[in-house]
Computed example of a mutant assay.
Amino acid sequence: MPYAKLTITIPESIWISKVSRTYPDTRFRVLAATANTATGVARIEIRGDDPEAVCQAMREYDSVTDLTVFEADPEMHRVQVETTVPLLLTSLQDSGVPLELPFEVRDAELTLEVTVPQETLSEFGETLDRVGIQYTVERIQQDTESDSLLTERQQWLLDEAIEQGYYDTPRQTTLVELANEVDIAKSTCSEILHRVEERIIKEHRREDPDMARDIAMPSD
């Protein structure tokens, strides 16, 4: 299936476009999101010099009906935001494109990676054109195996797992603790790490196919 990496310019009418333009150095990492035609809910990690000021600016928009801070420190807040008219999320969902979470918004631009059938990718582009959302295709290819070994999401979670000591001996954190730290479901965390491990092991085996024949197997 085609893999595509797109940069989407969020319309100025959407609150997160305005806020991220006001705070261009702040990173908005969307950890979870869902929407229907009337409302949207997203859990967002806000990283920057003054996340409290960013949260206050978000509350001032009429389309933001509720904002709850779950975790806060001077340079990072994790919040849940409820909004009206979630144009961007509904456009993604209507085109049948599954959201690869987390994705990041910075200075009114969203970077999105998708691996979907060609017809779904075409419909996605048509949907964005229809609602007036500008986008740039940064990369498209038919075979993800021929490019980087891991997707950006897989690399992000692997880096987090290594940093938290998940692969240390003995382990410094559990799967549940790691999933809670990065704010994703345990099952999702497990599946992503399994795919990471599978690809790394298979790539290592592919690069040295004669290795196994050089190892003497112990007899019983």
Rank of each mutant, 00 (worst) to 15 (best):
C189Y: 04
E71W: 12
P24Y: 03
L178H: 09
V131E: 02
L6D: 00
P51A: 03
D147F: 08
A53F: 04
M211G: 04
D168N: 11
P2V: 01
G165N: 07
V97K: 02
V131S: 05
R195N: 10
E181F: 02
V30P: 00
E119S: 07
W15R: 02
Y3W: 13
Q118H: 15
V97T: 15
P218K: 05
P74S: 10
L6C: 02
P11H: 01
I16M: 14
E160C: 13
L157N: 02
D66G: 13
Q141S: 09
L193C: 09
W156S: 13
N36Q: 12
S20W: 05
P117F: 02
A161L: 08
L87I: 06
A161T: 11
I140E: 15
E207F: 10
P11R: 03
A53S: 14
V79M: 03
E152C: 04
A33Q: 13
Y135H: 00
E203W: 07
Q142V: 00
E197A: 10
V81F: 05
Q118C: 10
E203K: 12
I215H: 03
F70G: 11
D168L: 08
R43Q: 09
E82P: 06
K202D: 10
D129W: 07
E52S: 14
L121M: 08
E60D: 10
L6S: 07
T26Q: 02
I200C: 07
Q164I: 00
G48C: 12
I44M: 07
A53Q: 06
D220S: 14
S190M: 08
P51G: 10
R59Q: 13
V81L: 08
C189I: 05
M217Y: 11
L87N: 01
R78S: 10
L178R: 03
L150E: 11
F28R: 04
P98T: 07
V64A: 05
E152R: 14
L149Q: 08
E197Q: 15
